[in-house]
Amino acid sequence: MKKRKLSRLSVSDRHNLNGLLFLLPFLIGFLCFYLEPIIQSITFSFSDVTVSLSGYDTVPVGLKNYKFIFKEDAAFNTRVMLDFTNLLWKTPVIIVLSLFLAILINQKFPGRIFIRAVFFLPVIFSAGIVLQIIQSDLVVSSMSSGNSLIEDGGGVANQSMGLNQLLLQAGIQEKIVEFVTKITNNFFSLIWNSGIQMLIFLSGLQSIPGSLYEAASVEGASSWESFCKITVPMLVPTLLLNTIYTIVDSYSSTSNSVMALITSSINTAKYGRATAMAWVYFVLIGLILGVVFFVSTRTKKSSRA
Protein backbone atom coordinates (compact mmCIF):
# COMPACT_ATOMS: atom_id res chain seq x y z
CA MET A 1 0.00 0.00 0.00
CA LYS A 2 2.65 2.42 1.05
CA LYS A 3 4.84 1.45 -1.89
CA ARG A 4 2.12 2.22 -4.36
CA LYS A 5 1.57 5.58 -2.76
CA LEU A 6 5.27 6.40 -3.07
CA SER A 7 5.37 5.43 -6.73
CA ARG A 8 2.45 7.70 -7.41
CA LEU A 9 4.54 10.68 -6.33
CA SER A 10 6.40 12.54 -9.04
CA VAL A 11 10.18 12.33 -9.32
CA SER A 12 10.72 15.79 -7.93
CA ASP A 13 8.39 15.10 -5.01
CA ARG A 14 10.35 12.01 -4.13
CA HIS A 15 13.56 14.01 -4.40
CA ASN A 16 12.17 16.61 -2.07
CA LEU A 17 11.14 14.08 0.53
CA ASN A 18 14.85 13.39 0.93
CA GLY A 19 14.98 16.76 2.62
CA LEU A 20 13.09 15.29 5.54
CA LEU A 21 15.73 12.56 5.76
CA PHE A 22 18.43 15.21 6.04
CA LEU A 23 16.43 16.93 8.75
CA LEU A 24 15.65 13.74 10.64
CA PRO A 25 18.43 14.14 13.24
CA PHE A 26 17.36 17.70 13.94
CA LEU A 27 13.70 16.74 14.27
CA ILE A 28 14.50 13.87 16.63
CA GLY A 29 16.73 16.24 18.58
CA PHE A 30 13.96 18.79 18.83
CA LEU A 31 11.48 16.21 20.09
CA CYS A 32 13.87 14.74 22.67
CA PHE A 33 15.84 17.75 23.85
CA TYR A 34 13.55 20.74 23.36
CA LEU A 35 9.89 19.77 23.23
CA GLU A 36 9.85 17.86 26.48
CA PRO A 37 11.73 20.48 28.53
CA ILE A 38 9.65 23.29 27.04
CA ILE A 39 6.35 21.63 27.92
CA GLN A 40 7.70 20.60 31.30
CA SER A 41 8.89 24.05 32.19
CA ILE A 42 5.52 25.53 31.22
CA THR A 43 3.79 23.11 33.57
CA PHE A 44 6.39 23.90 36.23
CA SER A 45 5.51 27.57 35.99
CA PHE A 46 1.90 26.78 36.91
CA SER A 47 2.74 24.56 39.85
CA ASP A 48 4.70 24.10 43.04
CA VAL A 49 7.66 21.82 42.41
CA THR A 50 9.36 19.84 45.13
CA VAL A 51 12.38 17.75 44.31
CA SER A 52 13.28 14.72 46.33
CA LEU A 53 15.96 12.09 45.85
CA SER A 54 13.69 9.77 43.90
CA GLY A 55 12.25 12.38 41.56
CA TYR A 56 10.04 15.44 41.71
CA ASP A 57 6.44 16.28 42.56
CA THR A 58 4.32 18.98 41.02
CA VAL A 59 1.22 20.40 42.64
CA PRO A 60 -0.77 22.62 40.28
CA VAL A 61 -1.37 26.04 41.80
CA GLY A 62 -2.75 27.95 38.84
CA LEU A 63 -1.47 31.48 38.42
CA LYS A 64 0.06 31.76 41.87
CA ASN A 65 3.66 32.00 40.63
CA TYR A 66 2.78 34.63 38.06
CA LYS A 67 0.77 36.62 40.58
CA PHE A 68 3.70 36.53 42.94
CA ILE A 69 6.27 37.85 40.49
CA PHE A 70 4.02 40.61 39.22
CA LYS A 71 2.51 41.77 42.49
CA GLU A 72 4.95 40.95 45.24
CA ASP A 73 8.40 40.46 43.80
CA ALA A 74 9.81 43.96 43.45
CA ALA A 75 13.26 42.70 42.46
CA PHE A 76 12.00 41.03 39.31
CA ASN A 77 10.10 44.02 38.00
CA THR A 78 12.89 46.52 38.60
CA ARG A 79 15.49 44.19 37.11
CA VAL A 80 13.42 43.58 34.00
CA MET A 81 13.00 47.33 33.54
CA LEU A 82 16.74 47.87 34.00
CA ASP A 83 17.53 45.08 31.59
CA PHE A 84 15.20 46.49 28.97
CA THR A 85 16.62 50.00 29.16
CA ASN A 86 20.10 48.49 28.86
CA LEU A 87 19.00 46.46 25.86
CA LEU A 88 17.40 49.48 24.23
CA TRP A 89 20.50 51.64 24.28
CA LYS A 90 23.17 48.98 24.02
CA THR A 91 21.86 47.16 20.96
CA PRO A 92 21.98 50.14 18.57
CA VAL A 93 25.36 51.22 19.92
CA ILE A 94 26.82 47.73 19.48
CA ILE A 95 25.38 47.52 15.97
CA VAL A 96 26.83 50.87 14.90
CA LEU A 97 30.17 50.12 16.54
CA SER A 98 30.51 46.69 14.97
CA LEU A 99 29.47 48.03 11.56
CA PHE A 100 32.16 50.69 11.87
CA LEU A 101 34.80 48.13 12.85
CA ALA A 102 33.75 45.80 10.04
CA ILE A 103 34.03 48.58 7.47
CA LEU A 104 37.42 49.49 8.89
CA ILE A 105 38.92 46.03 8.52
CA ASN A 106 37.23 45.50 5.19
CA GLN A 107 39.47 48.18 3.69
CA LYS A 108 42.85 47.49 2.20
CA PHE A 109 45.72 49.12 4.04
CA PRO A 110 49.18 48.04 5.20
CA GLY A 111 49.11 45.98 8.38
CA ARG A 112 45.51 45.02 8.01
CA ILE A 113 46.22 41.32 8.51
CA PHE A 114 47.55 42.03 11.98
CA ILE A 115 44.73 44.44 12.79
CA ARG A 116 42.18 41.91 11.61
CA ALA A 117 43.68 39.18 13.79
CA VAL A 118 43.50 41.50 16.82
CA PHE A 119 39.93 42.60 16.09
CA PHE A 120 38.79 39.00 16.09
CA LEU A 121 40.11 38.39 19.62
CA PRO A 122 36.77 39.15 21.36
CA VAL A 123 35.31 36.16 19.56
CA ILE A 124 37.85 33.89 21.24
CA PHE A 125 37.28 35.53 24.61
CA SER A 126 33.54 35.10 24.35
CA ALA A 127 33.77 33.71 27.86
CA GLY A 128 32.56 36.31 30.29
CA ILE A 129 34.39 34.49 33.07
CA VAL A 130 37.93 34.90 31.77
CA LEU A 131 37.35 38.56 31.05
CA GLN A 132 35.72 39.02 34.43
CA ILE A 133 38.82 37.72 36.17
CA ILE A 134 41.16 39.93 34.18
CA GLN A 135 38.84 42.87 34.62
CA SER A 136 38.25 42.62 38.34
CA ASP A 137 41.97 42.57 38.70
CA LEU A 138 42.65 45.49 36.41
CA VAL A 139 40.29 47.61 38.46
CA VAL A 140 41.96 46.66 41.72
CA SER A 141 45.45 47.10 40.40
CA SER A 142 45.11 50.32 38.46
CA MET A 143 42.16 51.98 40.19
CA SER A 144 42.32 54.29 37.23
CA SER A 145 39.02 53.72 35.54
CA GLY A 146 35.87 52.07 36.72
CA ASN A 147 35.34 50.74 33.22
CA SER A 148 33.82 47.42 33.88
CA LEU A 149 34.12 44.91 31.09
CA ILE A 150 31.18 42.95 32.25
CA GLU A 151 28.69 45.11 34.01
CA ASP A 152 27.88 48.72 34.55
CA GLY A 153 29.88 49.10 37.68
CA GLY A 154 28.69 51.20 40.56
CA GLY A 155 31.71 53.46 40.78
CA VAL A 156 31.50 54.60 37.21
CA ALA A 157 29.59 57.78 37.90
CA ASN A 158 32.60 59.75 39.11
CA GLN A 159 35.14 59.14 36.43
CA SER A 160 33.42 60.80 33.53
CA MET A 161 32.54 63.94 35.43
CA GLY A 162 35.01 65.90 33.35
CA LEU A 163 33.45 64.97 30.04
CA ASN A 164 30.02 65.38 31.52
CA GLN A 165 30.72 68.94 32.70
CA LEU A 166 32.37 69.89 29.44
CA LEU A 167 29.46 68.74 27.33
CA LEU A 168 26.89 70.31 29.64
CA GLN A 169 28.66 73.64 29.54
CA ALA A 170 28.83 73.45 25.77
CA GLY A 171 25.06 73.72 25.90
CA ILE A 172 24.21 70.20 24.82
CA GLN A 173 20.98 68.72 26.07
CA GLU A 174 21.22 66.79 29.28
CA LYS A 175 19.78 63.58 27.85
CA ILE A 176 22.29 63.48 25.01
CA VAL A 177 25.14 64.11 27.44
CA GLU A 178 23.91 61.28 29.61
CA PHE A 179 23.82 58.99 26.59
CA VAL A 180 27.32 59.93 25.44
CA THR A 181 28.87 59.45 28.86
CA LYS A 182 27.07 56.13 29.19
CA ILE A 183 28.75 54.99 25.99
CA THR A 184 32.20 56.22 26.98
CA ASN A 185 31.87 54.61 30.40
CA ASN A 186 30.95 51.27 28.92
CA PHE A 187 33.07 51.50 25.80
CA PHE A 188 35.30 48.69 26.92
CA SER A 189 32.43 46.32 27.53
CA LEU A 190 30.63 47.38 24.36
CA ILE A 191 33.60 46.82 22.12
CA TRP A 192 34.44 43.47 23.70
CA ASN A 193 30.85 42.42 23.13
CA SER A 194 30.65 43.32 19.46
CA GLY A 195 32.99 40.64 18.10
CA ILE A 196 30.48 38.27 16.54
CA GLN A 197 28.40 41.14 15.21
CA MET A 198 31.51 42.49 13.51
CA LEU A 199 32.12 39.10 11.88
CA ILE A 200 28.54 38.95 10.63
CA PHE A 201 28.82 42.46 9.18
CA LEU A 202 32.17 41.62 7.60
CA SER A 203 30.73 38.64 5.80
CA GLY A 204 27.77 40.77 4.76
CA LEU A 205 30.11 43.43 3.36
CA GLN A 206 32.04 40.81 1.44
CA SER A 207 28.88 39.53 -0.19
CA ILE A 208 28.17 42.91 -1.82
CA PRO A 209 29.39 42.64 -5.41
CA GLY A 210 32.27 45.04 -6.11
CA SER A 211 30.84 45.89 -9.52
CA LEU A 212 28.17 47.99 -7.81
CA TYR A 213 30.80 50.26 -6.30
CA GLU A 214 32.63 50.48 -9.61
CA ALA A 215 29.47 51.51 -11.40
CA ALA A 216 28.78 54.10 -8.73
CA SER A 217 32.24 55.62 -8.95
CA VAL A 218 31.98 55.77 -12.76
CA GLU A 219 28.74 57.67 -12.33
CA GLY A 220 30.61 60.10 -10.07
CA ALA A 221 29.24 59.10 -6.68
CA SER A 222 31.29 60.08 -3.67
CA SER A 223 32.29 57.39 -1.21
CA TRP A 224 29.74 58.70 1.28
CA GLU A 225 27.01 58.48 -1.34
CA SER A 226 27.93 54.94 -2.29
CA PHE A 227 27.93 54.03 1.41
CA CYS A 228 24.40 55.39 1.87
CA LYS A 229 22.99 54.13 -1.41
CA ILE A 230 24.76 50.77 -1.78
CA THR A 231 26.30 49.52 1.47
CA VAL A 232 23.45 50.31 3.85
CA PRO A 233 20.61 48.95 1.70
CA MET A 234 22.57 45.82 0.89
CA LEU A 235 23.27 45.27 4.59
CA VAL A 236 19.63 45.31 5.71
CA PRO A 237 19.36 41.51 6.09
CA THR A 238 22.69 41.48 7.94
CA LEU A 239 21.39 44.23 10.18
CA LEU A 240 18.35 42.15 11.05
CA LEU A 241 20.49 39.11 11.83
CA ASN A 242 22.79 41.19 13.99
CA THR A 243 19.98 42.83 15.93
CA ILE A 244 18.45 39.46 16.68
CA TYR A 245 21.84 38.03 17.62
CA THR A 246 22.60 40.92 19.96
CA ILE A 247 19.26 40.58 21.73
CA VAL A 248 19.55 36.79 22.00
CA ASP A 249 23.14 37.06 23.18
CA SER A 250 22.17 39.54 25.88
CA TYR A 251 20.56 36.81 27.95
CA SER A 252 23.48 34.47 27.77
CA SER A 253 25.76 37.14 29.24
CA THR A 254 26.84 36.71 32.82
CA SER A 255 25.84 40.27 33.64
CA ASN A 256 22.18 39.77 32.85
CA SER A 257 20.57 40.51 36.20
CA VAL A 258 17.23 38.90 35.33
CA MET A 259 18.93 35.65 34.44
CA ALA A 260 20.96 35.88 37.63
CA LEU A 261 17.73 36.19 39.59
CA ILE A 262 16.27 33.18 37.78
CA THR A 263 19.38 31.09 38.42
CA SER A 264 19.40 31.99 42.10
CA SER A 265 15.74 30.99 42.35
CA ILE A 266 16.59 27.64 40.80
CA ASN A 267 19.45 27.21 43.25
CA THR A 268 17.13 27.87 46.17
CA ALA A 269 14.75 25.21 44.79
CA LYS A 270 11.97 27.63 43.79
CA TYR A 271 11.57 25.92 40.44
CA GLY A 272 7.99 27.01 39.79
CA ARG A 273 8.72 30.65 40.44
CA ALA A 274 11.96 30.53 38.43
CA THR A 275 10.31 29.09 35.34
CA ALA A 276 7.43 31.57 35.62
CA MET A 277 9.94 34.44 35.71
CA ALA A 278 11.85 32.93 32.81
CA TRP A 279 8.76 32.64 30.65
CA VAL A 280 7.58 36.17 31.41
CA TYR A 281 11.03 37.48 30.54
CA PHE A 282 11.20 35.40 27.39
CA VAL A 283 7.77 36.51 26.19
CA LEU A 284 8.78 40.16 26.68
CA ILE A 285 12.02 39.62 24.74
CA GLY A 286 10.05 37.71 22.13
CA LEU A 287 7.79 40.73 21.68
CA ILE A 288 10.82 42.93 21.01
CA LEU A 289 12.19 40.39 18.54
CA GLY A 290 8.81 40.26 16.84
CA VAL A 291 8.76 44.05 16.47
CA VAL A 292 12.30 44.02 15.04
CA PHE A 293 11.36 41.28 12.62
CA PHE A 294 8.13 42.97 11.56
CA VAL A 295 9.77 46.36 10.97
CA SER A 296 12.66 44.86 9.02
CA THR A 297 10.47 42.77 6.72
CA ARG A 298 8.35 45.87 6.10
CA THR A 299 11.38 47.94 5.11
CA LYS A 300 12.66 45.09 2.95
CA LYS A 301 9.40 44.96 1.04
CA SER A 302 9.20 48.70 0.59
CA SER A 303 12.82 48.93 -0.57
CA ARG A 304 12.17 46.25 -3.16
CA ALA A 305 8.99 47.85 -4.47
Binding site: L27, F33, Y34, Q40, S41, V51, A274, T275, A278
Partner: peptide
Protein backbone atom coordinates in the same frame (compact mmCIF):
# COMPACT_ATOMS: atom_id res chain seq x y z
CA UNK B 1 9.82 27.92 13.12
CA UNK B 2 11.23 25.12 15.28
CA UNK B 3 14.75 26.11 14.28
CA UNK B 4 14.15 29.75 15.21
CA UNK B 5 12.65 28.55 18.48
CA UNK B 6 15.83 26.65 19.33
CA UNK B 7 17.89 29.77 18.64
CA UNK B 8 15.67 32.20 20.52
CA UNK B 9 14.59 30.25 23.61
CA UNK B 10 17.32 30.88 26.18
CA UNK B 11 18.70 27.60 27.56
CA UNK B 12 18.50 29.04 31.08
CA UNK B 13 14.70 28.88 30.92
CA UNK B 14 14.86 25.15 30.43
CA UNK B 15 17.65 24.32 32.89
CA UNK B 16 15.35 23.28 35.70
CA UNK B 17 13.63 20.74 33.46
CA UNK B 18 16.63 19.70 31.36
CA UNK B 19 18.49 18.93 34.58
CA UNK B 20 15.85 16.37 35.49
CA UNK B 21 15.61 15.24 31.86
Amino acid sequence: VLLILTIVVPPQILYSSTYIL
